[in-house]
Amino acid sequence: MGLIFDLIIGLSLAGVAWRIVRVREHFQAIVLFITFGLLLSLAWTRLKSPDIAIAEAAVGAGLAGVLLMDALGTLSSTRNQPLPGRFLQLFIPCLFLAGLMAYTILFIPADFQGLGPMVSEALPDTHLEYPVTAVLLDFRGYDTWLELGVLLVAVLGVLCVRQAGTIKGSMLPAPAEPVGRWIIKLLLPLMVLIGGYLLWLGAFAPGGAFQAGVVLASGGVMLWQAGHPSLALLHHVWWKILMISGFVFFLILASSSLLYNQQFMTHPEAKMWILGVEYAATLSIAICLISLVLASPARNQGDQRARKTES
């Protein structure tokens, strides 16, 4: 039964991906992409990685759909172009690449152990119970730190492209709708609650800073979508401070170990520091993602047009 399930998920993933690439309408491609995320998270559960299933659920269902829908909405007057005719020229090299990669899979040694045993050996040193969190925030701290840096660079890039000093300029109140407001009232506290729950869970079970950050960001984006003005109340200095807090906190922690004549990025009181970093990282991931979604310079036009139709 399990194998049939895997086969069907695999086949449908490939089929949906093929359709996304080949279909003419952009809107259909985006709806199919949301479905693709759903199927992918079913695959993660079968591969025993609930962490990734949770992250995929948060990103695929929430932010990715919102981003692509918004982009399509502001850019929608482009006609659906015909597909190019150079099908075989491009398809055959891709097929060749796929063949090469498949060839490598067949030659993985059968007694391959992976890094699992090493991680579980070193896990007691971190005082964390859950290996994925330990890898993220301790063993591979560099990666997580630089990942926060990537988020910051993306926000900076958006600011450069928009030629603006702050993200907040584009935060327009959306059309006020009774059902929109109602759903905010109901779902927002739950989002904050569930985000906090995932963060707390991260110390000993699947969950953690990434998933919690994405959920909180979804909450912020939903506030914006339903036209709630409260995001604009946060002063832009605070906005910036929160944005860089994860990165800076990580850096302070990492360089403080130099004071004790230890190696860069090692820390004595592991668990407390790690949890502190995790909380700061969650906040900055959330704020950076909100800024990235809100950065939509073409919004002004649409707003004016809406006012005209209303009046």
Partner: peptide, 13 residues
């Protein structure tokens, strides 16, 4: 409960 809220409001929208 969340699925109920989500579906019904999505239906309205």
């Amino acid at each position: 409960f969340l699925a109920l809220v989500g579906s019904s409001s999505a239906c309205y929208f």
